[in-house]
């Protein structure tokens, strides 16, 4: 779906979408509870908003975004752009500027506690997003207030806009950093749906520390010539590349 829509709209961010496509699909298929509009539904914040296509794909799979709406992706006047907006009924929060989503999620988690609701809040951040200082404000706040109903998932694909994360701003040891800030840390293969669902549903979300899953992922997952290749943060697909990608993913 990501490949098709990117090709049709002639836009990039394909690698970033493919690294979380399995993750977002797993969240919607087996983790997030409640329908859009239900105040007690679990909330989801795609803090790495540039992976919107992965979100649209999952929502399309659930019928919350129609095929027709998806076909309009990035067309003139389209509601679906390369970053998600809450004006789409199935999208909880608008995102696109990195480093803001975890604060929103922490607020949503605090709200749930104040309202004595058992709903949970899931926030998907990118690893490079952890360069943003404000993210660590939210990390400290959530730990201090023991927001056990808050789950952060870090898409650890090791890739950022101008290079490898280890070469730009080294984030490792990422899990231990979260641990030092008071979070409950789990390392999971970000392409193993069963492991993801099991881990995410297994948390004590009533008491204790907030949870973070460091999801080890492959940038451009599933398309051999994209995997780990920076250019696919930007490039749209040529006809030949599109055919090859579709063949590999089939």
């Amino acid at each position: 779906m990501t490949i098709e829509a990117s090709k049709r709209a002639n836009v990039g961010h394909i690698g970033s979408c493919l690294s979380v496509a399995d993750l977002v699909a797993a969240l919607y298929a087996g983790v997030l509870r409640g329908e859009p509009g239900d105040p007690d539904r679990d909330r989801f914040v795609l803090s790495k908003g540039h992976a919107a296509l992965a979100l649209y794909g999952a929502l399309n799979g659930l019928g919350r975004i129609s095929d027709g709406e998806l076909a309009e992706f990035c067309s003139e006047g389209a509601e679906l752009s390369t970053h998600p907006e809450h004006t789409v009924a199935a999208v909880d929060f608008s995102t696109g500027s990195l480093g803001q989503g975890l604060s929103i999620g922490a607020g949503a988690a605090l709200a749930a506690r104040l309202q004595h609701s058992s709903r949970r809040v899931f926030v998907l951040v990118s690893d490079a997003e952890c360069n943003e200082g404000a993210l660590w404000e939210a990390i400290m706040f959530a730990a201090h207030h023991k927001l056990a109903n808050l789950v952060a998932i870090v898409d650890a694909n090791g890739q950022q806009a101008l290079g490898k994360t280890r070469d730009v701003i080294d984030l490792e040891p990422l899990g231990r950093r979260f641990e030092a800030f008071g979070w409950d840390v789990h390392d999971v293969d970000g392409h193993d749906a069963a492991a993801l669902v099991g881990t995410l549903n297994g948390f004590d979300t009533a008491n204790g520390a907030p949870h973070v899953v460091v999801a080890r992922t492959t940038f451009g997952k599933g398309v051999s010539y994209m995997e780990g290749e920076l250019a696919w943060h930007y490039l749209p697909l040529s006809d030949a590349e599109y055919q090859r990608a579709v063949a590999e993913l089939a």
């Binding site: 929060f93 480093g99 803001q100 604060s103 922490a106 607020g107 605090l110 104040l114 404000a134 706040f141």
Partner: peptide, 28 residues
């Protein structure tokens, strides 16, 4: 006291928190 939160010296986080709180029905 239960409706008062000192978020620390972190204004960006404060305004992000407010979005999550307000979406759930609060007026922060």
């Amino acid at each position: 006291p239960e409706r008062f939160v000192n978020v620390g010296v972190a204004e960006q986080n404060m305004l992000g928190l407010a979005v999550g709180l307000a979406e759930a029905g609060f007026v922060p």
